[in-house]
Simulated scan of single mutants.
Amino acid sequence: MPNSTKVTEFLLTGFSEVWEFRVLHTMLFLLMYLVTLTGNLLIVIVITVDQRLHTPMYFFILNLSLLDMCYISVTVPKACVIFLLNNRVISVVGCAAQVFLVLLCACTELLLLTIMARDRYVAICQPLHYHVIMTPRVCVQMTLASVLSGLVYAGVHTGNTFHLSFCRSNVVHQFFCDIPSLMKLSCSDTLSNEITIFVSATISAGGCFSFIIMSYSHIFSTVLKFQTRAERRKAFSTCVPHILIVIIFLGSGSAVYLKPTSKSPLIQDMVISVFYSVVPPFLNPVIYTLRNKQIKEAIWKVMRRTLTSFRKIIII
């Protein structure tokens, strides 16, 4: 495309041009999408229905599940269309919306994970003050603050990105619109954008990660002082899943956003992007349902109620 031509739409890219691989990628993404929606929706229903789970920890898990359903829905449905139908076109407005929503969900998820680390710290290290510190009002305020911070973060970076001129090409080497891939297509000077992204991502991600590490260092030092092995196992079981999600999410996101744009191998970025845009929403329900005894019991309870009601309807 000539330098004088202004881009009015973008073309997203799949992992392969081979039909068999495209079908395989579609099936994998669609399976992960359906499992993510089903698992997170089940968690939302169970926590809402079961009164025993109306605690701060499960309140944050519920919000994380709602966010994950939105997060994966921003990228995966369009990716499946690209893989299966080879319909790669996305408008500039649609691309901007995708960038904004991805950043909003990613930033909000990071802040929610940080708040959840704070919740576990207070529950384990200050159990007598837990219900005084983590009141329902405080939990709602922290959740709203996370969403508002995500809106500001996403708005600033989306505005800065689409303030650039795109005239070199319209082929985005990614299965969804993200800022590093778009900046490669810009004919404007992107140095200030790269510096802004690096500084803001370092401050936000680094600050959240430091806070999480500090929280868990206090948690582990307290847990090791517990007298019985059962108490230590119960405490660790609520912390380990959270740490796994944080490592995967921050590690993969940093690998894409915190390195120079010109030094980004295309296929490597596409694979890594799966780990911060698709894998965390997919793993959250799996980890929290398989490792959380209370949620598993609540799920079985809801399923038994549903089956009983269904049988009564059939008999009638």
Rank of each mutant, 00 (worst) to 15 (best):
L30Y: 11
I313F: 15
M142E: 03
Q98I: 05
C95E: 04
L104G: 02
V102I: 10
P56W: 07
N86C: 03
P241S: 12
I212N: 05
N284F: 07
V271T: 10
H25F: 15
T238P: 00
P127D: 10
T26A: 14
L53A: 06
V246P: 00
V138R: 14
F310Q: 09
S4D: 13
I272A: 10
Y216P: 00
N87D: 10
L101A: 06
L84D: 01
N40V: 01
T202F: 14
L24D: 03
S273L: 11
D119A: 05
C167M: 10
T48D: 05
R232L: 08
V278M: 03
L11T: 09
I61Y: 01
S204K: 08
I213C: 14
V93D: 10
F100W: 06
V274S: 04
F226H: 06
T135E: 07
L30N: 08
H54D: 08
F236V: 11
N40F: 02
F175T: 03
H129I: 04
S165G: 12
L11M: 13
H218S: 12
T261M: 01
L164I: 07
T75V: 11
T238E: 09
L258V: 00
S91M: 08
Y33T: 04
S146T: 04
F209V: 14
M1Q: 09
S149G: 01
I299V: 15
R304A: 14
